[in-house]
Design a binder for these strands. Structure first.
Lengths: 218, 218
DNA sequence: ATTTATTTTTAGATTTGTCTAAAATATATT
DNA sequence: AATATATTTTAGACAAATCTAAAAATAAAT
């Protein structure tokens, strides 16, 4: 089946939301898509008719197996294009999201297979997010949240979940990127903030809000 | 100013048609775009309002200077992406047109500048068509139509103007590609067909219709 | 120079995706 | 449990891009 750009964007957003919450509700999807609840309802009906969604009026909704497949091909395209933009074209990793949002809707599947091969079959995009393979299988890594790291232990940043410009600006300020080594020095119970040490940087303190979005592996 | 995918497609088609004819008329644009004359008229009004077109009802139309600029950025993107698809991803040159039709509408100008640089600033796409630079300047080559080549003389194929699948199928059959050396053996006055010799191939005869679409340089 | 044929434009309808405002349903509070 | 609040859906409107059918303008043919 074929999907419009708009449909693909809805499917992708639902996929991301249901990763966290299981069932998704109308308002949170509206917020995610920066649109109105009424528009969401309209689209939900369309997607339900296309067997992409399990949808019960007023109850909530989630993707069918088929819907997940569609979502994963869009996610796959997005992340492969991000990899291309950073590794081949030399973009900064915090500048590629919007361009990849457009590129992910190019339809040719032959294109994406050839792109994957050209890039050397990468498993993770420049933000550390796993790239689904052509069957929708997602590579797993043993990563944990920075807040869960034992005191005194060091680990490498493997992914960053919030990719807003604001967040990326912060990361740049702290000189944190994928692969950066971070040692957790101290946890402050008062506000959950963390004192950390980044190689070749003086120790510093980051808020719990930042830390929650940073994942690391040993 | 920003243009929709549909507007960009109209602008590009008008550009190509006015290269041949100066003024463009509604029906030929409708044929080129595979749509109806009424739809064309609707879009002409929109483009005229945006100062992209010089348009006089019932008379014909052509792009303004501004319109030409827009057309050239789309053509530039199309041809750079075609080059990428063939030279980097390994597509056959007759398979890339439809994908480039989608890629040419990705909006970021930073992307296209970086792509150009990544590709090594190519001047011609895989079909031999010149790639406009970021100012819209088109590289010139001294090429001539195959039908204008003197008898007995050999020359290299530099571009092919008709890029329909039918034409490309023919070219494949005759083993003609950009860079192929062709010697003109004989011209048949009866139907304008040409006997030609391609290196390492037995001599063969091609129709005038094919020959008119093939350009060569010495 | 009329008539005929072709081309182009208008008028009105359709589809997709969006919106606002109001109604319907579900959830929370007293 | 009844009422208040929040969420979700419906109803109806709008813009973009397209279409068909009919009208208007131009070009061609007798």
């Amino acid at each position: 089946m074929n999907f419009s750009v708009s449909e693909e964007n809805y499917i992708k957003s639902i996929y991301h939301l249901q990763q966290d919450t299981g069932l998704v509700n109308t308002n949170s999807l509206a917020a995610e898509m920066q649109t109105k609840a009424a528009s969401v309802t309209d689209m939900l009906k369309k997607l339900a008719a296309k067997k992409i969604l399990q949808y019960e009026k007023y109850k909530g909704f989630k993707l069918t197996e088929n819907g997940k497949k569609v979502a994963l091909t869009v996610v796959r395209k997005h992340r492969l294009w991000e990899y291309f933009l950073v590794e081949k074209l030399g973009f900064e990793w915090d500048k590629v999201h919007d361009i990849a949002e457009e590129l992910e809707h190019i339809s040719s599947s032959e294109l994406i297979e050839k792109l994957q091969h050209f890039l050397g079959n990468p498993s993770f995009d420049p933000h550390g997010d796993p790239i689904p393979d052509s069957n929708g299988k997602i590579p797993r890594i043993s990563q944990q949240n920075l807040t869960a790291l034992p005191q005194g232990k060091a680990a490498l940043v493997s992914s960053v979940t919030n990719q807003s410009p604001q967040m990326l600006e912060m990361l740049k300020h702290y000189k944190i990127a994928i692969g950066t080594s971070i040692r957790l020095l101290k946890k402050f119970d008062f506000d959950g903030s963390l004192e950390i040490k980044i190689s070749k940087q003086p120790a510093c303190v980051i808020s719990e809000q930042i830390a929650k979005n940073i994942f690391v592996q040993l």
